[in-house]
Nucleic acid binder design. Structure first.
Length: 109
DNA sequence: ATGGTGACGACGG
DNA sequence: ACCGTCGCCACCA
């Protein structure tokens, strides 16, 4: 079932604008769950319902600026890379995003 | 219950 | 910059 924590996480992710990215830890903190970055990964992994179509899960990457490796075949990683590139996010030769440039900063609440 | 796992992250070497 | 370790905690078998 969908817990309040998951809803809080999705609400934050929905605010990340096109062409910008946020880290798991950043989303966790903004969602009121400081130190629980892993839970953000779980919440995004659980995104499968139609009502979650508006959650831009691909804009969440890890603190090193990389697309986090999933278990199993990495098809989703590839999709995430493409979606981000399509919105203008650039990757260096190591597949990393320059967070100092592309990181989303929360505006005034 | 309970132990293993993992879309993470800070830290130390 | 690159590992390994440890803390974290919801999920699941």
């Amino acid at each position: 079932m969908r817990s309040p924590a998951y809803r809080a996480i999705y609400d934050i992710v929905r605010r990340i604008p096109r062409g910008r990215v946020a880290t798991y830890g950043q989303v966790a903190t903004l969602a009121g769950l400081p130190g629980r970055a892993r839970q953000v990964g779980y919440a995004l992994h659980a995104l499968r319902d139609p009502e979650d179509r508006d959650v831009p899960w691909h804009r969440v990457i890890n603190a090193r600026g990389e697309i986090s490796p999933r278990a199993g075949a990495g098809l989703e990683e590839h999709a995430q890379h493409q979606l981000l590139q399509a919105e203008g996010v650039t990757f260096d030769p190591h597949g990393r995003v320059d967070l100092t440039r592309a990181r989303w900063e929360l505006e005034a609440p």
